[in-house]
Design a protein around this nucleic acid. Structure first.
Lengths: 207, 207
DNA sequence: CAGTGTGAACAGTTTCACAGCA
DNA sequence: TGCTGTGAAACTGTTCACACTG
């Protein structure tokens, strides 16, 4: 089934698989079946096999998938094998939490710059990163930063996004509760916990 | 097209529409066309019409949709018209950020309880909520809390989830980077920023 | 024989075109 | 005329069954 378009949903599941096999790798395992991996990460075995089949023959019939192979291949597909630097704009509650979040590391990510408008914050250090004035944002291009994280109030989110695009950012993770519009060469992923929380009651039994 | 099963994807978009019409309502508007709303929230007009059509005839041909009607109907469908109380477990960086996040309000949500294992935190107040010892979690049922928020390290996430289920929680928002398994009567939504960030590089141009 | 890889059937979602209404 | 509501077509993703392989 090679040479076919890869579903977005498959891409969405790859990080899930990666985390699962990293976990198994830490425990010293060398191979895993689709059934076992599925049990670990909550995805049915046939879907795992289908997903992996888009990228070639990862597995060995009768045995399963080599864990080292999986880690290497998935990382490569997701382009996590090179280090990515990200800049966060807005060092409030959300921005601070992100700076201290350790989960980025295993995906080859690092927040290496932080910006804020608040003069009192500028110059201080949070989680080892110096806070800079937001007016100097366009300097990030020279520092090799291509990813931006928006952690500012909704009212200024679009403005920050525009500045990021101008500064050469090509991928944005948006934590503000606003849809933002950017040129289509720029990829935006919006994370809005309010949206997710609002969906929850619908699925609950009783009124 | 009434009386048909409502797609999950439609439910996912309802909070997006709601936020859009709330925004328009604040600006004093009384009605909006699918084209205009679509431009605001980033969804194509025909999809908006299709989504709304699952719930009956919201709109008026030639005019559009009444904004007050939309707010009332969407809130009712999502069951946001009643106040929901939530309890957060883990008052670290993520937990603290959630406690101070003001976005829950417009969806009729409130975090009215907070729990932690750290004795030094217990008894203190964050964003107006007193931090309680996690061992008293099962008391939340009596207080009418049915939603739980997991904001603890990955290693103890499953344990906390089990305790939540035992405490009568029927909806869980999971902020830990772990899939958790619960009885199927319980609905879980997992938010994992690492997963989203890991997806981003795949969509970026150049290597 | 256990477990992968995959074509084909199935299910869910989006897009389109247009009838019908204010 | 402008806009909604919707069946049908097109598309995307999931499930299944089983041939095949180490």
């Amino acid at each position: 089934m090679r040479y076919r378009k890869i579903p977005d949903e498959t891409i969405r599941r790859l990080p899930v698989y990666l985390r699962g096999v990293l976990h198994l790798s830490e425990q010293g395992m060398e191979s895993v079946s689709s059934r076992k991996l599925g049990g670990l990460v909550g995805v049915p075995p046939w879907l795992i096999r289908k997903d992996f089949s888009y990228f070639g023959d990862f597995g060995t019939p009768g045995i399963g998938y080599g864990i080292k192979t999986l880690i290497k291949q998935i990382s490569k597909i997701l382009r996590l094998d090179v280090m990515h630097e990200a800049a966060v704009v807005g060092v409030g509650n959300v921005g601070s939490a992100l700076l201290s979040y350790s989960g980025f590391g295993i995906y080859g990510f690092r927040i290496s710059a932080a910006f804020d408008v608040d003069k009192r914050k500028v110059g201080k250090v949070r989680s080892g990163v110096k806070i800079e004035d937001v007016s100097t944002l366009r300097g990030v291009k020279k520092r090799g930063i291509r990813l931006g994280i928006i952690a500012v109030p909704a009212a200024v989110a679009q403005q920050v996004a525009d500045e990021m695009v101008e500064a050469g950012i090509i991928g944005i993770l948006n934590f503000s509760p606003r849809y933002i519009t950017v040129p289509k060469k720029v990829k935006v992923i919006t994370i809005d916990i309010g949206m997710d929380l609002a969906r929850l009651p619908y699925y609950l039994p009783c009124g």
